[in-house]
Simulated assay, not measured.
Amino acid sequence: MQILFLGTSAGRPTKERNVTSIALSVHGHFNRFWLFDAGEGTQHRLLETKLKLNKLERIFITHLHGDHLYGLPGLLCSRSYFDGAGPLQIYGPTGIRDYIESAFRHSSAHLDYELEVTEIEAGRIIDEPEYQVEVAELDHRILSFGYRIVESPQSGKLDTGKLARLGVQPGPLYGKLKNGEDVTLPTGQMIHSAEVVGPTSPGRIVTILGDTRPCANADSLARVADLLVHEATFAGGMEEKANEYGHSTIIQAAQCASNAQAKKLVVTHFSSRFGEEDVARLVEDASSVFPDTVAAYDYLEVDVLKGNN
C-alpha cells in the first residue's frame, strides 16, 4: 500500500499546492488505485504521475465543499478516453449523485463505462476478502466523513528451508500449505500447514479524514492506524478560528494521532497563509505532541508499512 498526495492546500490552490486529492495504491506499486477527494485540477496532477485513470477503481468523497470535488466531473469524463476503463464506484455524502448527474445533464456528457454512485451512511461500506472500509461522520460545517481502510490479515511466511528438508519441492503444494491446507506427499507423509507457515499478522490500517474539528469519531477511525492522514488547516494557538470554520490546528491533529495510538501522522490541507517555511515550523510544534509527524506536499509518496517499521 502506498499513498500519493496530489493536492495539499486548503480552500484554494497556491503556486506550490493544489487543492485536496489523495491516491491510495492498494494492489501493487501504482497499479490499481483508489482516489480520496478530487479537488479542481486533480486530473492535471495525475498527468505528472504513473497513475492512469483506467486503473482507478474507486473514488471516495469526504464532503461536498468545492475544494474536495470540483475536479470530479472533468476527471470522470476524461476516463472515457482511456482504453480498458472498467466500472467505477464512487462513494460520498448525500448529494453526490445529484451533483454528478447535474454536471453531466447540463454539459451533455457521456461516459463509456459503468458508473455506480453510492451515498453513504456511517458504518462498513466495503467488505471484501482483501479490504474493508468503514466510515464515520466527522464534525465540520457540512456533512463530512472519515474513512478507515483495513487490510485483511496476512498469512504467515512459508518456511521454505524446512520444506526443502522435508523433500517438498516448489510448486502447487507450496500454495496449498500457504493457504492453510495440509498436504500428503507421494510417500504418504503428511505435512501440516501449521508446521511450515508462520503466524498470521494483522493487515495494515490507513485512516483518511475529511475536514473536521476534533471529535470522538476522528479518534475512533484513527485507532492504532499504521498511517493517519489528518487535516491541519491552522497553526497551534488558532483553535478559536479553527473551531469557527470547522477545522483543526496541527496540534489538534497531533493530539488525535496520540489519542488513537496511531503509528504515523501525515498532516495536509494547509491554509494558504502558510508558506513552506511556516509549514516546517508547524511540524516542529506538532512533533512535541506526536513525534512521527510529517507534512504532506504535492506528489509526496508514503509507503504504508505495518507498525511503520
Rank of each mutant, 00 (worst) to 15 (best):
A164L: 07
S107D: 10
G84F: 06
I191V: 14
Q261S: 14
P87A: 10
S287K: 15
T14V: 00
A253V: 09
Q169G: 03
R58L: 04
Y174F: 14
H106Y: 15
A222P: 06
K241D: 04
R32P: 10
V289K: 05
Y131I: 02
K176F: 08
E231L: 12
P87M: 03
H140D: 09
E301F: 01
V229P: 01
S271F: 03
A235D: 00
N243Y: 12
D226W: 04
F290H: 06
A194V: 14
A262F: 08
Y297P: 05
T233P: 05
R97H: 11
A280H: 14
Y297L: 03
D278T: 13
L166C: 13
G41M: 02
V26I: 10
L51N: 03
A262C: 12
T207D: 01
E231D: 09
A10Q: 05
E277A: 15
F60R: 10
T49V: 00
K15C: 00
E276F: 08
D83H: 12
G86Q: 11
A38Q: 07
D112K: 15
R12W: 06
A235R: 15
Y70T: 11
E119Y: 12
Y131P: 00
S152P: 06
D226S: 12
A280W: 09
K264A: 09
A242H: 07
H192T: 14
T160V: 13
F36M: 04
K176T: 03
L265F: 09
H27K: 15
K15R: 14
L138W: 02
G203L: 00
R273D: 09
S21G: 13
E244K: 15
L177M: 10
G167M: 11
T62H: 12
K178N: 03
L46I: 10
I126M: 07
L88G: 01
T200S: 14
Y147T: 06
H269P: 04
D219A: 14
D37K: 13
R223N: 12
A164Q: 12
Q43D: 11
L221Y: 05
R105V: 11
E284V: 12
D182E: 08
P13W: 01
A136N: 07
A257Q: 03
L72C: 13
D211L: 13
L69G: 08
G84P: 02
T200P: 00
L158Y: 12
I3P: 00
A254T: 02
L24G: 04
R124S: 00
